[in-house]
Design a protein around this nucleic acid. Structure first.
Length: 587
RNA sequence: GGGCGCGUCGCAUAGCUGGAUAUUGCACCGGCCUCCUAAGCCGGGUUCCGUGGGUUCAAAUCCUGCCGCGCCCGCCA
């Protein structure tokens, strides 16, 4: 088995910034020598938009006036005056392009990791009232992708699920389970034209119990006694009634467990769960509500309800009041959210929330209220909705595509393909590969889209196994693994010789060298899709390298190429892990 | 009525702290396995970047009017 020398076990930081740092001093000298005043150009020196032209680019249009020549000539002058250790500068039209040398790039590959502090990422936190559907899944996939990316970048991450264990959704579920029998449920659903679809998951408690939830919602619309019953339960839960909270838990916990099984199948796990009721029970909500009364924004409605007037804080619309205490003195969901944030800040120095765009206003209100309480606001990433071609998804109305079914379908489609390509493999292995491919493809098809873009769910897109998808990346990784296996035990300690590299090998090194920049910038700009794109590009680069750089030729191992292949394998693996693709070693 | 977001080739998608021929995939056409996995690689695109103005040496990117789509504006969660 080939082993990489320790210096290649990577994680550097901000190679692009390192390059800029290395270039800026000689650049100043060059600017002085051609006679350009000021340092306004420093912010114009940035990553080249034309990757083929180099790593950094400086547009020279603004210098033309100052130097009294054309932009092209200015670029030429600057490039000529520039002397670099880390690469070379070439004028191309009105641009000075700087290309880092292979020597420099390779040193960047061996940078050691840097610990970056803690962050608590809260995501998913779906009401435990029914199975995961593809709409809810966007939160989970996005959230877990952030968790993974932050971890890969050196952060100490806590992934957190906020359990809505009180309130109306759970109240309805609890009421239904305690008051309706199976026949009633089936009759109600038949009347309401909500189909009960038999599936391999019917016995899972999230699938089983959601029928009660749906039925109760139907009944509630025509029988006010139901509403009264639910309201009573909800009110008691808000008073932290132990008996009610225990009955709620008995109702939702099996559902939540079922949901977590689905998430587990997708490789999504949580470090901690916090229940909403905690903040009623421990009295922290009550304390915060008292504190809010001294806010300048504080107001009281006729019936004694308390609110903050947010108009002066830039909140606009029909209602600018943020109610945090009802007329009867009880708290609201948002109020408990305040206590929750206070609690989260005791656990981490950074907080990140992943929320659907429907929570934008709510989140803004909570942030203002937190500010009034002298509590810092969390960072928030919003994502747009996933809808079905024929309209909105709704657990209540049964208009959903369940994640369990989607994953099954993805797996079975992947199986068809694997079976075709790898007829040599035993059934057990085929199943394992197709499961990994199905899960990875499903996740990647969500993660690769910019969060603020709305998604219309289509089976064909969700199950796509084409290029620019997870299987493509997995395939590249599996290929590198196969080469490693074939190469056998080889001593790689000679290190990489950068002289005489082929073009595709150089491209591969360049791509890998900027991995940490890509990761950090995806994190900083809350754009996991950009890191997905980088990972696809890495796979393409590796495939091209593979095409014209033989690692094993006629039984002889080319050590230099093996080092590169191994580096690529390592980068591909870490990239996959950072976006939730399962880096299987054979497919 | 107001707020926020989105509108890029037939479809999907990147770029949007202004700069070089607007990225990538699908679909469509052609080429590449007597050597490491062809789920691969190579080649093939006249896109008024929703639309009308404006700012600029330079606009998909900034400002503004309009059109279309989504989300929100509960003493619900």
């Amino acid at each position: 088995m080939a082993v990489l020398p320790p210096c290649y076990v990577i994680l550097g930081v901000d190679q692009m910034q390192a390059l800029i740092d290395a270039v800026i001093i000689p650049m100043e000298a060059a600017m002085n020598s051609v006679g350009i005043q000021g340092d306004f150009w420093k912010k114009m020196l940035s990553r080249s938009k034309e990757a083929s032209q180099g790593d950094l680019a400086l547009p020279c249009f603004p210098f033309a006036k100052q130097l009294g020549c054309s932009p092209d000539a200015a670029a030429q002058q600057i490039a000529n005056a520039l002397e670099l250790d880390v690469g070379e500068a070439v004028a191309v039209g009105p641009y000075v392009n700087i290309r880092a040398s292979m020597d420099w790039l390779v040193t960047q590959l061996s940078k050691t990791p840097e610990s970056k502090g803690s962050i608590l990422i809260e995501h998913t936190s779906a009401n435990p009232n029914g199975p995961f559907h593809v709409g809810r899944a966007r939160n989970a996939v996005l959230g877990d992708t952030f968790v993974r990316m932050y971890r890969a970048a050196g952060y100490d991450v806590t992934s957190e699920y906020y359990v809505d264990d009180m309130g109306k959704q759970v109240g309805i579920l609890c009421w239904a389970l305690e008051n309706l029998d199976e026949d009633q449920v089936h009759n109600l659903l038949a009347e309401g034209e909500i189909p009960i679809e038999e599936s391999p998951h019917s016995a899972k408690e999230d699938h089983a119990r959601v029928l009660w939830y749906q039925a109760a919602n139907l009944l509630k619309a025509k029988d006010s006694a139901v509403d009264a019953g639910v309201t009573e339960l909800v009110q008691k839960s808000e008073e932290a009634d132990e008996d009610i909270l225990a009955r709620f838990e008995a109702a939702y916990q099996p559902v939540l467990d079922g949901m977590l099984v689905t998430l587990g199948r997708m490789g999504i796990a949580f470090d901690s769960f916090t229940k909403e009721s905690k903040f009623i029970v421990d009295g922290s909500v009550e304390i915060l509500m008292d504190q809010l009364q001294s806010s300048e924004l504080h107001g009281v409605a006729e019936n004694g309800a308390h609110y903050l007037e947010l108009e002066s804080k830039g909140v606009k619309g029909k209602s600018t009041q943020f109610y945090y205490r009802r007329g009867d003195g009880s708290s609201l969901y948002a109020t408990r959210d305040l206590a929750y944030h206070q609690h989260k800040w005791t656990r981490s120095v950074r907080l990140l929330n992943i929320l659907g765009e429907d929570h934008k206003l709510q989140s803004k209100q909570v942030c203002i209220a937190l500010d009034e309480l002298d509590i810092k606001s969390p960072e928030v990433v919003f994502y747009a909705f996933t809808k079905l071609a024929d309209g909105k998804m709704s657990t209540r109305r049964g208009n959903v595509v369940f994640m369990d079914d989607l994953l099954d379908e993805a797996q079975s489609r992947a199986l068809e393909t694997v079976r075709e390509i790898r007829a040599d493999l035993p059934e057990e292995k085929l199943m394992k590969i197709s499961e990994a491919v199905g899960v990875s493809a499903t996740r990647f098809n969500i993660a690769r889209i910019s969060p603020e873009k709305g998604i219309t769910f289509r089976w064909a897109d969700a199950l796509s196994l084409e290029a620019d998808s997870a299987p493509f990346i997995m395939y590249s990784h599996a290929r590198a693994c196969s080469i490693q296996r074939k190469a056998g035990e080889v001593d790689l300690s000679v290190g990489l010789d950068v002289t005489g590299l082929s073009g595709t090998a150089a491209d591969l090194i360049r791509r890998m060298a900027y991995m940490n920049d890509e990761l950090q910038s995806a994190i900083d700009s809350a754009a996991p899709h950009n890191f997905c794109a980088w990972l696809s590009a890495l796979a393409v680069d590796y495939n091209r390298f593979y095409r014209d750089n033989y690692v094993i030729e006629e039984g002889v191992v080319n050590v230099q190429n093996l080092i590169l292949s191994e580096l690529a394998r390592d980068h591909l693996r870490r990239g996959c892990e950072a976006v939730g693709i399962i880096p299987i070693e054979e497919m």
